[in-house]
Structures are given as C-alpha cells and as structure tokens.
C-alpha cells in the first residue's frame, strides 16, 4: 500500500529523503529570518531554474503547486488589509488600513511563502515514506523504535480504506446507513478509530513477539546511504539560501522578522 506513490523519475529520485528534507528546511528557515521581497524573489527564481532542470513531469507538479499559490495570495491579502501601516494611506475603513507599508509587507509575505513552499512541495512529491523512515533512523539517528512504529502505523492507512468500505456495507446491511450524513460520518470515523486502535494493539503484540523494542543491537534490512547526488543536492540548497541572503543584504533590503 502507499498513500500517494512517490515520483520516481528525474534526478531527485537518487537523492536521499533526509537530504531533501534538510535542503527544504534550510531554505525555509533562512527565508523565515527576514521579511523582504528581494531574498524571497531570488530564492524563487533559483528554485524555478533548479526545478526545470530536474525534469519532473509538469502535469503532476503544477496541480500540487496551485494551492500553494492560492495560500500565498491570501496571506498577502490579509497583510495588505491588516499590515503595520506606513507611508501613504490608500484606503481606511474601520480596522482595515491599506498603506504603502502594508502593501510592501504583503508582497514580501506572499513571495516568501511561495519561495518556502515550492521546493518543499516538490521534494515531498518525490519522498517515499519507507525511505524517509530508514534515513531518519539510520542517518539522523532518531530513536529507531519510534520511527519504525510510526512507519508501521502508516502502513495501516491502506487498511483504513478497506475498513471504511466494510463498515459502510455493514451499516447498510443493518439498515442504519441512510439517514443523517454528518451523524453517519461521525459514527463511521469513530468506529474506524476503535478498529485502528484494536489492530494497533494486536500489531504491537506481534511486533514485540518478533523482538521489536528488545535490548541489543538492531540491524537494518535497507541501509540508508548518502552519496554524490546528495552532495550535489546539498550544495544547491546551500547555494540558494546563501545567494538569497547575500543579494538581500547587499541591496540593503534585509529586514529581520523579529525586530
């Protein structure tokens, strides 16, 4: 079972998920430190160039990016209306105050969200949960029991969908399926949760019986490794973050988010 099959084409397929996560977080935290349109624009342009080079299928990528565009736009609208007022006042009505200052902040906010979101949406499209868990446990050295437990639970999602179908059929057979859509859904979700917990308890017993959580060294069926593609990806991530900072500071537009 898989939630959404990860994209396996293009150069990104050979990069370890941990590297992808690291790059996305690096760019995100760098841009979060400042609110200015220059750093965000520089990062966005560079990211677009890199994406074009990775040759992911645009038909898959663009629909996933669309909600991000909407979210960025809406955050921009909010900031336009309620941003810190400065400079010329364009419109003032109650608590709404559109000024030069709030518009500038709005543009910076929207660009920043786009620049943070684009690489992350795309990188996550290409991440396989199993590989991510292997990387997090072996390379980042997060506690293995927790990482593997989470992965085991994730694999139950496929069963959730089967359970949902079975529950619906069972209720229909009993003649309690046709009234009150909201109530019925709430009941189904609850029943699903109970089933999931019971299955989880059983799964835990089975895993314990096979040595899960036992003391002693753990071995790994799928070694997670870093290689040349990871070095290249990390270099690109660092370059994007660094260029955004350098250009922003050089043009005097860097603006600390907390000041």
């Amino acid at each position: 079972m898989s939630l959404l099959p990860a994209l396996r084409t293009g150069a990104l397929a050979r990069v370890n998920p941990v590297t992808k996560l690291g790059c996305a977080l690096l760019v995100a935290f760098t841009l979060l430190a400042t609110v200015d349109w220059v750093s965000a624009a520089v990062a966005a342009v560079l990211e677009t160039a890199v994406l074009a080079a990775t040759r992911l299928p645009w038909r898959t990528v663009l629909p996933r990016l669309a909600p991000l565009g909407v979210a960025a736009l809406l955050a921009g609208i909010t900031t336009t209306l309620y941003g810190v007022p400065a400079g010329r006042v364009w419109w003032h009505w109650g608590v709404v105050e559109i000024t030069d200052g709030s518009i500038a902040f709005a543009v910076a906010t929207a660009l920043r969200i786009a620049a943070i979101g684009v690489p992350s949406v795309v990188l996550f499209l290409t991440i396989d949960p199993t590989e991510l868990a292997d990387g997090l446990a072996q390379l980042v050295r997060l506690p293995a029991r927790f990482v593997i437990g989470a992965l085991a639970a994730l694999r139950l999602v496929g069963l959730f969908f089967d359970d949902w179908r079975a529950l619906e059929l069972a209720r229909r057979a009993r003649g309690v399926a046709d009234r009150g859509r909201v109530r019925r859904w709430a009941g189904l979700v609850f029943a699903l949760l109970v089933l999931a917990i019971r299955r989880g308890s059983k799964l835990a017993t089975a895993m314990e019986a096979r040595g899960f959580g036992a003391p002693g060294p753990r071995s790994w069926a799928r070694p997670s490794t870093l290689g040349r593609p990871d070095a290249a990806a990390a270099a690109i991530g660092i370059a994007i973050a660094a260029l955004a900072v350098i250009v922003s500071v050089a043009t005097g537009s860097w603006h600390w988010v907390v000041s």
Binding site: F146, A150, A153, L156, I197, R199, M207, F212
Partner: peptide, 10 residues
C-alpha cells in the same frame, strides 16, 4: 511497544 504503536496509529 504497545504505547508506541497505538500512539502512532492514533
């Protein structure tokens, strides 16, 4: 183990 797995399932 049951804590971990049920926590993860939830």
């Amino acid at each position: 183990p049951v804590d971990i797995i049920v926590a993860a399932v939830l």
